[in-house]
Design a protein around this nucleic acid. Sequence first.
DNA 1: ATAAATGCAAAGGATTTGCCGTCAA
DNA 2: TTGACGGCAAATCCTTTGCATTTAT
Lengths: 154, 154
Amino acid sequence: MTISAAAQSRLDDFRARCADAGLAATHQRLIIYRTLVESTDHPSPELVYDRVRTEIPSISQATVYKNIRTFLEIGLLQEVNRLHQTNRLDANLDQHHHLICVRCEKVTDLYDDQLDGARAHDESPGGFQVLNYQVEAYGVCPDCQSTKAASSAQ
Amino acid sequence: MTISAAAQSRLDDFRARCADAGLAATHQRLIIYRTLVESTDHPSPELVYDRVRTEIPSISQATVYKNIRTFLEIGLLQEVNRLHQTNRLDANLDQHHHLICVRCEKVTDLYDDQLDGARAHDESPGGFQVLNYQVEAYGVCPDCQSTKAASSAQ
DNA sequence: ATAAATGCAAAGGATTTGCCGTCAA
DNA sequence: TTGACGGCAAATCCTTTGCATTTAT
């Protein structure tokens, strides 16, 4: 059994999910989504564009970007790093983790020795020589909990 | 005891660390670094610029950006998200973690139920309502392990 | 003295936007 | 048919770069 089992089932749902979200199932949209599902290497938007162009040479970059954003908005797609849009700096070099508010993108240091002990079962997962583990806890910060709206606080 | 104890000790080291790295201890550099140390809110470069300007109104954005880069290069500073420069997409919505190569920035999915169980000791750390925990394992991928140079593979 | 750092302005790269023609429902 | 979508080009935002002047060592 290859990756295509899971991939196929996700594709099967694609039209249904578009319908649910009120999105038209266009050819471009389908190819972009299929490309994403088949790309297990966590590609950049630019790389997705390159790959999609092998199937639809005339597609525009804007269409790829717009659809990626749409997929993110309806939760069909994630970013490896939810803080991608702006760089966030940290002069604290001590071992620690982060609490990240999914609404306002506030980041708070999280000290927790239970998390410090996080380790993969495999000592060298995927052949990686792991240097350190860092935990990101996504959630809703106190300020945003008291706000009904889905927008920001800070 | 306030935050200033740790902050002060880091500041005390600043000139020494500059000397070690062969960097001049300029006024601008000191203020930028002090601002970073005193900013526990993981600011964006732009926000750092704003804060530094309250002390040195004439400082240029380029100086702030250059010094941030310098600090990152000598390991005096970290980014919350090491993949910030390019967005990285993930259509895999199943619970999983990531192996991130610090050399070539390759990202690999990591399935591990031991990591799935990562939880802070405090159920609601910092008052956050945590939705999910995700572990990022930073390390060196197999390809880069066989490469001596500090550059990339992929 | 001299190599490095600052400040300015321009360049660069990634992403978004506006608008018009086209397509899915 | 009609509102949504694709394609194109321009705009925007963030970050880097080149260069002349100033500064630290």
